[in-house]
């Protein structure tokens, strides 16, 4: 069930294609939001970029399987005596559109492309964890109030007071040991990936929890919650069946904004050596490898950074666009 806030009722606009100013259609808030989003060109471009990245990310493992992308073969024959790519323009060719890596000689496009898959997978999983924990605790804190609220509030303070990067660094050997030895996750990219997902997710939920708590505080005073309570609905039913459906808009927006934050965070962690490690490529560790050749091979240095920046900007613009469309009051 979706509640129409009073301020949105007034926003019903005449159908532009209608017979005239008298043709007034009644639009649901969702339809209104969609109409607002449709007018926002910037968000459309961002959405297209995001869709392209996600499709590319899904396609990459199959392309590797069929041999179209080859992120591991070392093409030593394409390097010159200084182990830089031979030829003009950083060794660009039809078979290697972004050239090959200096030193090793792997195809750069393949590594970046498959890196998108791994980076998106890690960010997506971490965003799910962060949103899940944040929404659950936010609803509980907002609805229960009192001591429960106070305790959750202090836990949030505690998590925020932890210097994240430092803790991640320090906890990496311990976390990996627990994952491989006690939970029997096979050592390697999977365990490293799971560690990154867990730490990003378990440190990232605080913002969502605060946001959802605030929303719940206002929602719980509404009549439909009283009605449900009068019907004798259980607390869990009120939390997850009555309140949660009214929270999808902020949840969608935060989820979209978690993605760029986590893609950037993965890159930062890769630089410090605690993300997924090569030879499995992520956008972060491809960039980490490439910065050694910052002055020798500009294309190799710039390409992974550009791919990170493009998706981060796009997800941010998409998140802002969604927020503007779903919450026209909050013009920030």
């Amino acid at each position: 069930m979706t509640v129409t806030p009073a301020n949105q009722l007034e926003e019903r606009t005449p159908d532009p294609k209608g017979a005239g100013p008298t043709a007034i259609t009644s639009n649901s808030p969702t339809a209104l939001a969609f109409a607002r989003f449709r007018k926002d060109k910037k968000s459309w471009v961002a959405l297209v970029v995001v869709v392209v990245y996600i499709s590319a990310g899904i396609a990459a493992p199959f392309l590797v399987m069929f041999g179209v992308l080859d992120p591991q073969t070392a093409n030593q024959d394409l390097l010159n005596a200084n182990t830089l790519p031979a030829g003009d323009f950083w060794g660009i060719s039809w078979t290697h559109p972004l050239g090959v890596e200096p030193g090793v000689g792997r195809d750069v496009l393949s590594r970046i492309w498959l890196g998108i898959t791994y980076s998106l997978a890690v960010s997506l999983a971490a965003a799910f964890i962060a949103v899940f924990v944040g929404v659950a605790l936010g609803i509980i804190a907002g609805f229960a109030g009192g001591w429960t609220d106070a305790i959750i509030g202090r836990v949030i303070d505690l998590v925020l007071a932890f210097p994240q990067t430092l803790l991640l660094l320090a906890a990496a050997p311990v976390g990996l040991a627990i994952l491989t030895e006690q939970l029997h996750v096979p050592d390697g990219a999977l365990a490293q990936g799971m560690f990154v997902v867990l730490v990003l997710g378990l440190f990232g939920w605080t913002g969502t929890a605060r946001l959802i708590r605030g929303q719940v505080l206002s929602l719980r005073e509404r009549e439909f919650v009283d009605a449900a309570r009068l019907f004798g609905a259980s607390r869990r039913r009120i939390w997850f069946k009555e309140l949660l459906p009214n929270l999808w808009a902020p949840v969608l927006v935060t989820f979209t904004l978690y993605m760029p934050a986590f893609i950037s965070a993965e890159a930062a962690l890769a630089y410090l050596g605690v993300s997924v490690r090569p030879p499995t490529p992520t956008l972060g560790n491809v960039l980490k490898d490439s910065i050694q050749y910052a002055s020798g091979d500009f294309l190799y240095f710039f390409a992974p950074a550009f791919m990170i920046a493009l998706i981060v900007v796009s997800f941010n613009l998409l998140g802002d666009g969604l927020r503007d469309a779903l919450d026209p009051k909050g013009d920030r």
Binding site: S264, A268, I291, A294, S295, A305, I308, V312, V313, N316
Partner: peptide, 23 residues
Amino acid sequence: TLVVYAFPTFFIGIFLLKYVAIK
């Protein structure tokens, strides 16, 4: 400012170091 923010910090740092300071 959004585009600059989107590039990883260590990329910006290395760029400033290798290009602005050295090259």
